[in-house]
Amino acid sequence: MPHFAMVIDLNTCVGCNACMAACAMENQAPVWDKDKWRTYVHDKEIGLGSDVNRRFFPRLCNHCDNPPCMSVCPTGATQKKANGIVFVDQELCMGCRACAMACPYHARVAITSDDMREGREFYGSDYRRTSPSMDKCSFCDHRVEQGIKPACVETCVGSARMFGDLDDPNDPVAQMVASGAARALMPHIGTRPNVYYIDDIKWRG
């Protein structure tokens, strides 16, 4: 059984936001509210005076191996597959938002009845959502199960997003993680995330 993970290289992310658009269309995100997209690219300037770097920082659900969003979920709507993907069963979710409170990565969004109404207008008869619930990145599990990469990875122009299997020693993603070049965010919280980042600042200047 694979153990899926993503590596994001901050050196090659150019902030084109194509990943956001691809994800939104693939997963029918509420595009009318930028706070409700499953993935988001933060744009920040780091440094002082003329020594300033612009950093694009894509964030998404970290598909933790010890996900606090799953343990706090009172209905069992948040579940984890054997392949490591954390997903929400929207039929079980009552939308108490405890998962959003528990997530250290700001990866949970609320899809309300109003969002569904707009979704039906925007996406038309293809709209798949059946009930309001909390939402999150699913690593495009419907694509991954068919052997296709997540939409954000496939569309990334700079190959900043890489998707692979940590249990496969020949997978470049597993190798980058094993080498320590790609590191998890806030590992001290104990969530054991499966999204890793290659730092950009130390390579610059």
Partner: peptide, 19 residues
Amino acid sequence: LLDKTAVLNVLNPMILFRK
């Protein structure tokens, strides 16, 4: 709550065995 009907899932005492 976002979906008030789904609250039934947590009112069932058997939820303590699942969660």
